[in-house]
């Protein structure tokens, strides 16, 4: 049923990656993503691949999650590969009708696909090892300098937190309402498109009513606890940059230097 869906990709764990400060993780991820575009040599990509594989291994995320995070974008990756394969001029391997498959194309196709795969895997590593709450918290912190120019950083983060918090609740609620209407003879599995569309109304109306009721109750409960926006608000779990984060930053800088050397030597 609906309850089988698991929302969010967070995988609880205690690895070094899990324990890193989410702000540092976001910033480092950002630099790595830029790095992947900037250091576009074969040597650099071998280093990046090893790095990604290693991080996955040490974070304790099951390897099948790697393929799972790639699957939604599989077609884009294949499409990109095909375009480069067929459209790069160079030495022919084969000819299919009016298309030339070239050695250069093959190399470039693999290269670009690998770039996409690395981008996806590194980004999903962030969501795999960081709970949604920490993630929004970190975003709020990183965006807070923009408060001065009128970006409502706290409110945005709060909205994200609440939305994430209520996704499972709403799924559960939908499940319950569907069961209740099934008990009254609703049938969600047979009938043509029109009939099925009609069956959605008895689910959507109670769902909306309950969502509004919950929103109302939540607002009331927040108000009762003197919530008044982000001004002067402190946190129970304060984000702290620890030694792990310094080591990670240091290692990243070293890696950067190494990659720069590789690029300089055209490897």
């Amino acid at each position: 049923m609906l309850s089988d869906i698991t929302i969010g990709q967070y995988f609880p764990g205690g690895s070094l990656l899990h324990r890193m400060d989410p702000r540092v993780k976001i910033v480092l991820l950002f630099f790595f993503l830029i790095g992947i575009f900037f250091f576009d040599t074969v040597g650099a990509y071998i280093v990046f691949s090893l790095l990604t594989g290693g991080l996955f291994y040490f974070s304790g995320i099951p390897m099948r999650m790697m393929t799972k995070s790639l699957r939604p974008l599989l077609w884009i990756i294949l499409f990109t590969f095909a375009i480069h394969l067929f459209s790069t001029p160079g030495e022919d391997i084969a000819r299919i009708w009016m298309f030339h498959v070239t050695w250069e194309g093959l190399g470039k196709g693999i290269f670009i696909s690998l770039r996409l795969v690395l981008l996806i895997l590194l980004s999903s590593l962030l969501t795999f090892t960081t709970s949604p709450l920490k993630l929004t918290d970190a975003l709020e912190r990183l965006l807070s300098p923009l408060k001065r120019v009128g970006v409502p950083a706290h409110e945005l983060a709060m909205m994200m937190t609440i939305a994430l918090r209520f996704i499972p609740t709403l799924i559960e609620e939908t499940d319950k309402i569907m069961k209740a209407q099934q008990s009254r003879g609703s049938d969600f599995t047979t009938g043509n498109l029109m009939q099925r569309a009609k069956q959605i109304v008895p689910v959507l109306v109670p769902l909306f009513i309950s969502a509004f009721r919950r929103a109302d109750e939540l607002a009331m409960a927040m108000e009762a606890r003197c919530y008044h926006g982000g001004e002067g608000r402190t946190q129970m779990k304060v984000l702290r940059v620890s030694s792990i984060d310094y080591v990670a930053c240091g290692a990243s800088v070293l890696l950067c230097g190494m990659l720069a050397l590789l690029k300089w030597n055209n490897l």
């Binding site: 319950k176 309402i177 209407q181 008990s183 009254r184 008895p202 109306v205 109670p206 309950s210």
Partner: peptide, 11 residues
């Protein structure tokens, strides 16, 4: 079948 908080099914 009457569920807990059955009134939540009214629409």
């Amino acid at each position: 079948m009457v569920f807990q908080y059955a009134e939540h099914q009214l629409f």
